[in-house]
Computed example of a mutant assay.
Amino acid sequence: MTTHLALLRGINVSGHNMIKMDALKATLEAIGFQNVQTYIQSGNVFVDTEEENSAKVGFQIKQEIFKTFGHEVPIVVIGREDLEACLRNNPFLKEKELDIKKLYVAFVSTTLRSDNINDLKISQFKPDEASIDANRIYIKYAVGAGKTRFDQKYIEKKLNVTATIRNWNTVTQLLKMYEEK
């Protein structure tokens, strides 16, 4: 049995793509996922399945959400090792006087190259900062996520990927939940 974490993008935001987590849980259990557990209303869902391929798991969840709720929801599926790598590899964690509330991670649908950071043209968003690591982009917003144009839509357009962003507190809580499983 493999535990996957599905990160759903764009649900329950400003009254759009509304999905109650208990309804989502029941829907995923009905199609065979086990030990379905959600965290907050923004679409973080743990599922256990015999399927090891995360892309197949994501596709299955995406199909079922569309079929049941009528929403086209982009999904990035990650494993425990992705969250562990976040804690090990986030370059901003080494800074003194770090405001954790300004740290975010964009999880993307494919492995990136280190030179993809040039494609993002992050310098035009200074003083926001970013760093790429495999299928993650670590982001440190100068003011906050709500006051920047360096967001998931921009990342997707520039890199031609599916992306979903989580704040640092959510990332650490999801890892804690993985460890408790």
Rank of each mutant, 00 (worst) to 15 (best):
N160C: 03
T38Q: 11
I132G: 01
E29W: 05
A130K: 02
G70D: 12
N118F: 12
F150Y: 13
A130H: 07
A145M: 06
L98I: 15
A130I: 03
G10V: 11
N12F: 06
Q63R: 07
F69N: 02
T2I: 15
D133E: 08
L8D: 02
G32Y: 09
F69K: 06
I11N: 05
Q34C: 06
F150C: 12
I40K: 04
K153D: 15
E51Q: 13
E97N: 15
G32S: 07
I139H: 05
V45S: 10
R88G: 01
M18S: 05
T164N: 00
A134M: 14
T2P: 00
I137N: 02
V73N: 12
K96F: 14
I100L: 03
I40F: 06
A26P: 02
D151N: 15
T2L: 15
N167S: 01
D82T: 10
I19A: 12
G15V: 12
D82N: 09
V171H: 00
G58K: 06
L5K: 01
Q152S: 10
I117Q: 14
K126D: 10
L120F: 14
T172P: 01
T38A: 14
K140F: 06
D128S: 14
I65D: 05
Q63F: 00
I122K: 14
V105Q: 00
N160Y: 05
G79W: 07
Q63W: 00
A163D: 04
Q63L: 03
G58S: 02
F66N: 12
E95W: 07
E29V: 10
I165V: 12
V57P: 08
Q34I: 00
L5W: 04
F33K: 04
E52V: 11
G43I: 04
I65K: 06
V108S: 05
E97G: 14
A163W: 06
E156T: 05
V57A: 13
S123L: 02
K157D: 14
D151T: 14
A142L: 10
L98K: 12
K153C: 06
K25Q: 13
L8K: 03
K176Y: 11
T148K: 07
N44I: 09
N35C: 03
R9M: 07
D119M: 11
Y154C: 09
H16A: 15
A26H: 04
F107P: 00
H4Y: 09
A26N: 06
S42M: 06
R166Q: 02
S14T: 12
K147Y: 08
Y178K: 00
Q60I: 12
V171A: 02
I132D: 00
F107Y: 08
T38W: 06
E64P: 07
F107I: 01
K158W: 01
H71N: 15
L8T: 06
K102I: 07
A142Y: 15
I65E: 02
K96H: 11
L112T: 12
H4W: 10
E29M: 09
V47G: 08
K96W: 08
T3R: 14
L83D: 01
T49N: 04
E95Q: 11
A26K: 09
G32M: 10
N44H: 06
N118Q: 15
I139A: 03
F66M: 14
E95F: 09
N118P: 00
M18W: 04
I165P: 03
N160S: 13
E72W: 09
A30S: 15
N12T: 10
T164S: 00
K20P: 07
K157T: 07
F59C: 13
Y141F: 14
L5M: 08
S131H: 09
K20A: 13
